[in-house]
Design a protein around this nucleic acid. Sequence first.
DNA 1: TACTTGACTGAGAGTTGCTATCAAGTTATA
DNA 2: TATAACTTGATAGCAACTCTCAGTCAAGTA
Lengths: 132, 132
Amino acid sequence: MYTIKEVAKKMEVSEHTLRFWAKCGFFPFVERDKNNVRVFSESDLDWVKIVKCLRACGTDNKSIKKYLTLCLEGDSTLKERFDIIKETKKKALSKMEELKQQLEMLDYKEQFYMDLIKNNKKDIWNPISASK
Amino acid sequence: MYTIKEVAKKMEVSEHTLRFWAKCGFFPFVERDKNNVRVFSESDLDWVKIVKCLRACGTDNKSIKKYLTLCLEGDSTLKERFDIIKETKKKALSKMEELKQQLEMLDYKEQFYMDLIKNNKKDIWNPISASK
DNA sequence: TACTTGACTGAGAGTTGCTATCAAGTTATA
DNA sequence: TATAACTTGATAGCAACTCTCAGTCAAGTA
């Protein structure tokens, strides 16, 4: 059993964000102790992990709430949830692909700057000169 | 030479965003025609590409503006710009790593749902049951 | 020539997803 | 007993868009 602070540390999500997510209705099943303090169970952490995953893949909070609702509705929504996961995978893969391209660009730029610095050349590609 | 609309289409950035970026001071060198319409040159597109890249890697707009300022200052800032690119690469790589992990998780989930659907099993992992 | 259509412009309001601040309540420690 | 260390929700602020809109201009059409 974990307090919100412990969850924040363990899952690398800020307390602020966890409270915000709570307000979004992401944790309707998280229990409270007699002082109204949230008590996260081990399996609640699994759910936090899923939320983190969906967010990282670009899913907006409304859709996460919807996914949760489907989960809570039970087995009749399995197919729909499966589709959401597949869709999320697609988004993640395309993000990956984009990052790969950006990395190529950064590699090129890095090399470019390195050459300029090493050989004491002029920066011929530079927004000023480039726009002329 | 391109209008903002053409740039938007070519670079896959919305016109709104381009105007917003313009307001952020990202395009001080983009020329205007006699009707005050922005005219992007081929090399301005290269700069848009760099902005896109930096944004995709998580650089905030203030830092992008700063990078631009360094570019405009000329060769004396080469080393500093080189460091920014290296830092950006680091961020991109760690984003990549995170995405890879999220993908693993999604693969697992996908398989999991597939099994449940195929074998008509009950969803034993479900926020409800999981939180009990 | 008047009229419509279709850019493009900047100003400003609205949205999302945090992020920070704060007062109020509870518990542990000195 | 007081004071520090938690928690809570409410609220404000922020970044980066995103949308709406009134206004300007140019070209095409009746």
